[in-house]
């Protein structure tokens, strides 16, 4: 192994570590903001850290089989994979990750991959609620993949590339170069898909604790759950960074990244989530396949005509 590879790995670990901390803090802040909207004080901002420490410090653990053990591993692999193939900060060596070797399609594959691994693992737990949660999750996922894929295709046509770094590079210079201004229809379709991806309120039926208990991870506990929670933070921030790169001009330093991801999260998922009640699965599928899919199609058509 030569020194270049070692530096790359070191950079990736550092970038992953920082982004995990920021993801967990962001989750804590969102919990606090939602609580304030409800008129409560809400948990402290560091609550997600405590939960993860507590879950990992549980003394007993049970496995229901190999796939059960591998479920969270697949999930966290998907979270880390999603993040590591996105250039988090444009022009930075530490935060560019492995973006040179993968494009947006690889990232999209990683977004889907974790759910499939989780489905296999949760299925082996033998708990009847897990497959119900899994089937709901996969159905909803397939639905919001449609507008998201259409938006990505539209971007590919617009920028004539699939590399995220090049898409970000094309948006530099002025705020008016951002995709949200140059191709607003694709941005709208993708942002609606983001609502589903983040599993905030209108589309939270999969992992809401009040529904069929907590969905796929019903049987996951202790360190498995700790792993899933860590993944939730990484995955969440990875998706936000992807959106920031595709539609909001990327970031040139860490502060910009924090600000942009925070604002995207608050103004899409959280603000919508606290204002709207929860959809049932078939309602959300119908929702995604109707207007967002049409907007995505329209975006492709308009971009192709130009």
């Amino acid at each position: 192994m030569n020194s270049v590879t070692l530096i790359l790995i070191g950079n990736a670990i550092l970038s992953l570590f920082l982004i995990t901390i920021w993801g967990l803090t962001l989750n804590g802040m969102v919990m606090k903001i939602v609580a304030r909207v409800h008129g409560r004080f809400g948990p402290p901002v560091w609550q997600p850290f405590l939960d993860i420490i507590k879950n990992n410090a549980k003394r007993t653990m049970i496995a229901h089989g190999t796939m059960f053990f591998l479920g969270p591993v697949f999930r966290i692999a998907s979270g880390i994979g999603t993040y590591l193939f996105i250039p988090a900060i444009f022009g930075s060596t530490v935060f560019s990750n492995f973006s040179f070797s993968g494009d947006v399609f690889l990232v999209m594959y990683f977004i889907f991959f974790g759910q499939l691994g989780m489905a296999l693992g949760a299925g082996e737990s033998g708990h009847p609620y897990s497959p119900i949660g899994v089937s709901r999750g996969l159905a909803q996922m397939t639905a919001f993949e449609v507008p998201f894929s259409l938006a990505v295709i539209s971007l590919a046509v617009q920028y004539n590339t699939l590399s995220i770094t090049e898409i970000v590079a094309a948006q530099q210079g002025s705020i008016l170069n951002w995709t949200i201004f140059t191709n607003p229809l694709a941005a709208i379709a993708a942002l609606i898909a983001l609502l589903g991806m983040n599993m905030h309120n209108p589309f939270s039926i999969v992992i809401a604790p009040q529904e069929i208990p907590i969905g796929p991870p019903t049987e996951y506990h202790s360190a498995y759950l700790g792993m899933l929670q860590t993944n939730r933070a990484i995955f969440n921030i990875a998706k936000l960074v992807l959106y920031m790169n595709l539609f909001f001009g990327g970031a040139t330093n860490f502060i910009t990244l924090i600000l942009k991801t925070f604002l995207i999260y608050i103004f899409t998922s959280v603000a919508v989530g606290v204002a709207f009640p929860r959809f049932r699965t078939e309602q959300s599928i119908r929702f995604f396949l109707k207007y967002p899919a049409l907007i995505g199609l329209l975006a492709i058509i308009i971009v192709s005509i130009k």
Binding site: A35, G39, R40, G42, P43, N55, P213, I214, P217
Partner: peptide, 21 residues
């Protein structure tokens, strides 16, 4: 509920025995 708000003490409900303490 908002009136007593147990979440501020780090207490949260959990639907399954596996995950709760």
């Amino acid at each position: 509920t908002a009136r007593y708000d147990m979440f501020r003490y780090g207490i949260a409900p959990r639907p399954t025995p596996r995950q709760s303490s």
